Amino acid sequence: MAVPETTGSEEKGFSIASFLRETKVELKKVTWPTKQELIANTIVVMIAVCLCAALIWVIDTCFSVLFRMLLQ
């Protein structure tokens, strides 16, 4: 069974200064992407968004045509 980690801040209450200090420590642990990784991931996301938008457009157009045929 996992034991929750205690930082001692639960006993003192909330402090903005300690929150900002802990945030800074945690951000130093982050592995930030390189410029090349960032560009590659951005391109992948843009392609995925365009494909999803195109798929929704095609499905919407098909339904529109079907409903027009049914209502005529």
Rank of each mutant, 00 (worst) to 15 (best):
I39A: 06
V65M: 02
W32Q: 11
R68D: 11
G8R: 10
P4R: 11
A48I: 02
V45N: 07
K24P: 06
F67K: 11
L70R: 13
T61A: 11
L51I: 05
S64A: 08
F19G: 10
C50L: 14
D60I: 10
M1Y: 14
T7P: 15
P33D: 04
V45Q: 04
P33Y: 01
L38F: 14
E26Y: 10
M69K: 12
T34S: 15
K24M: 02
W32D: 02
C50V: 15
P4S: 11
A2R: 15
R21V: 05
E10F: 01
I47K: 04
E22S: 14
A53H: 00
A48N: 08
V25P: 00
L27I: 00
L71C: 10
K12A: 05
I47H: 13
S18N: 15
I16D: 05
E10C: 14
L66F: 05
T23I: 08
A54C: 03
S18Q: 13
L55I: 05
L71P: 00
R68Y: 08
L27F: 09
T7K: 07
L70Q: 03
G13T: 11
W57Q: 07
F19Q: 04
V30H: 04
A53M: 12
N41T: 02
M1W: 12
S64C: 12
R21A: 11
Q72P: 07
T61C: 08
W32G: 00
L55K: 08
A17L: 09
K28M: 03
I16Y: 07
T6L: 09
I39L: 07
T7H: 13
S9I: 10
T42H: 05
C52M: 12
L20C: 13
A40Q: 06
E26S: 15
T42V: 01
D60V: 01
R21E: 06
L66P: 00
F63M: 06
E22P: 04
I59D: 06
E11Y: 02
E11H: 01
G8T: 11
S15D: 08
V3E: 11
C52Q: 04
V65H: 14
W57K: 05
